[in-house]
Simulated assay, not measured.
Amino acid sequence: MTRHQLYARTLTTAALLLAAAGIYTGAATAWWMSVFGLYGAAFLAYCARLEYSFHRQQLLAHERARRAAVVQGAEPLIPCCSIWRHSDHAVHGPGCTRPPDTAPDPTAELYAACCAAWFVSRGDTHESTCPTRTTRSSAA
């Protein structure tokens, strides 16, 4: 249990108690007095939602770090290109000098593409500026 989850549970309990007090106050005395309790309950529920969100973000960060440690071993993540840094370490740029990972990469074909039109058309067409301009065999 993270501290955010503890705060979220505390805020949720306080919101429920304040909502119950607001409803009781509205039924027992004047209805306009319940507005303050219900407003406070809504605010505490909003704060609890934010804390639950922070809890999920912290768990996600820990899971990403664990997966990176398992996949990468003890090797630290060294930034190699700007696309890699901005894609949360998932995709390398076309001019990246880092060798492709040893694990099967679903974007390996994209890295090997000679032009964007070739990749989109599965090897049938090329752009006018493409230096290769060879079509893919239908057997592949």
Rank of each mutant, 00 (worst) to 15 (best):
C96N: 07
C114H: 14
G37R: 02
A103N: 04
S53H: 10
E51A: 15
Q57E: 06
P104E: 15
A112W: 00
F119V: 01
C96P: 07
R122P: 08
E51G: 08
E109S: 15
A113M: 08
S87L: 05
H55A: 15
A117H: 04
A41E: 04
L38A: 12
H55I: 11
W84T: 05
V35Q: 05
D101I: 03
A108D: 14
L50R: 04
P99G: 11
F54S: 01
G123P: 13
V91D: 04
L44V: 08
H55E: 15
T97N: 05
W31F: 02
E75W: 07
R66E: 11
D88Q: 04
A113Q: 08
Y39W: 12
C47N: 13
R56N: 04
A108V: 09
A112G: 09
E63C: 01
D105M: 07
L110D: 06
R67E: 06
H86G: 03
A117Q: 10
Q57A: 08
R66H: 03
P100W: 05
A103R: 14
G73T: 00
L44R: 11
R64Y: 10
E109W: 14
L50W: 00
L50Y: 01
D101R: 15
Q72A: 13
E75N: 13
S82G: 02
P79Q: 02
A45P: 06
